[in-house]
């Protein structure tokens, strides 16, 4: 059990450190694509630093839940990042939670955030909570289906063993993963509040989802939530990488393997972030009423992925 401890610690630390950088990288790429002068790569870290130094301003009538939620959400995201095989597949924590539980952890964070948003009782909070739940309850089944597709191939729902099987199978192409890949991309765009579902940089009341949720937070609370949001993007990117591009992960705890895995991960993330930025730059944000359609498409594609696997795989 202790064998993977170093890998596990390194994975968590990498997640904590790299997540804001990934957000910064996407923002930087977008700025380049839009011919703006780009913020530095570590801009999110600077923002976090600034926010942590400020004091907390609590709204009147805020319950203890409101103050507790940032910590809980942050904990959820760290847990999620800990059980996703980012650097190695030998993770001591991965026995704690499998793919289904991972979706549950992500859902828990969402519910907590929505509760906190409604706790204050402002109109924006409730609106954001409602929209976020709408996206969430449509996206989660699709995400589950994507994970099931991969799980069917690996005969296990534990993420680490799933990725292990996917990474070490013979040179084989799984058609079901084509569907799962498209569905997963759509879901992660929706879940992370990127264009075309949500715009992370807008405060326009007609369209915002995520920003409306966290409007009442300030100081270190806000910092934690922003950090958690970056972690969520990081987690989704890593799930995508782990499922669809699993090569280059360390199978054991040897320092050399981990040392190799880290740059590979960074390279893959950089590529993924750049693709995300391009996709965001070329697409227009859709109307909120189209979001259910969009997620229904993702769900149907994910289910077809499962079906294709059943048709071809056995």
């Amino acid at each position: 059990m202790a064998s993977g401890l170093a890998g596990q610690m390194l994975a968590i630390l990498a997640a904590l450190a790299l997540a804001p950088i990934l957000s910064g990288w996407v923002a930087q790429c977008r700025a380049w694509l839009q011919s703006r002068s780009a913020p530095p790569l570590w801009q999110p870290w600077l923002v976090l630093h600034k926010l942590f130094l400020r004091e907390v301003v609590l709204a009147q009538g805020a319950s203890p839940l409101f103050s507790a939620v940032p910590f809980l959400v942050f904990a959820c995201m760290v847990t999620a990042c800990a059980i996703i095989p980012t650097l190695s597949t030998d993770l001591p924590l991965s026995v704690v939670a499998d793919a289904v539980a991972l979706v549950g952890v992500l859902a828990l964070a969402r519910v907590l955030l929505s509760l906190a948003a409604m706790d204050i009782g402002t109109a924006f909070g409730s609106l954001g909570a409602r929209r976020d739940m709408l996206v969430g309850f449509l996206a989660e089944p699709a995400l589950l289906m994507v994970l099931f597709t991969a799980a069917l191939g690996a005969h296990s729902t534990a993420l680490a063993s799933m990725v292990d099987v996917l990474a070490h199978r013979e040179l084989a192409i799984l058609p079901s993963l084509a569907f799962a890949g498209v569905a997963f991309t759509m879901v992660s765009v929706a879940e992370n509040g990127r264009i075309p579902v949500d715009n992370p940089t807008t405060h326009l009341e007609l369209t915002m989802i995520h920003e409306a949720l966290i409007l009442e937070y300030s100081g270190p609370h806000l910092a934690l939530i922003e950090w958690a949001a970056s972690l969520k993007l990081f987690a989704y990117s890593c799930i995508g990488i782990a499922l669809f591009f699993p090569w280059g992960l360390a199978a054991n705890d040897s320092p050399l393997a981990l040392l190799f895995a880290l740059p590979i991960l960074v390279a893959k993330l950089a590529l993924g972030g750049a693709v995300l930025a391009v996709a965001e730059s070329v697409s227009a944000k859709m109307r909120i009423f189209r979001v259910p359609e969009y997620l229904a498409i993702a769900f149907v594609l994910a289910v077809i992925g499962v079906l294709v696997h059943i048709l071809l795989g056995s």
Binding site: I173, L174, P175, A178, F179, I297, I304, V308, L312
Partner: peptide, 28 residues
Amino acid sequence: NDLSTVGLQLIDLLAAVSLLLAFGLLIQ
């Protein structure tokens, strides 16, 4: 041999892509 195994899987994959495009047609 390995080559034709890959070929077979590639055909399945392409068929899946074709179905994906059929759904694309359905929703476009």
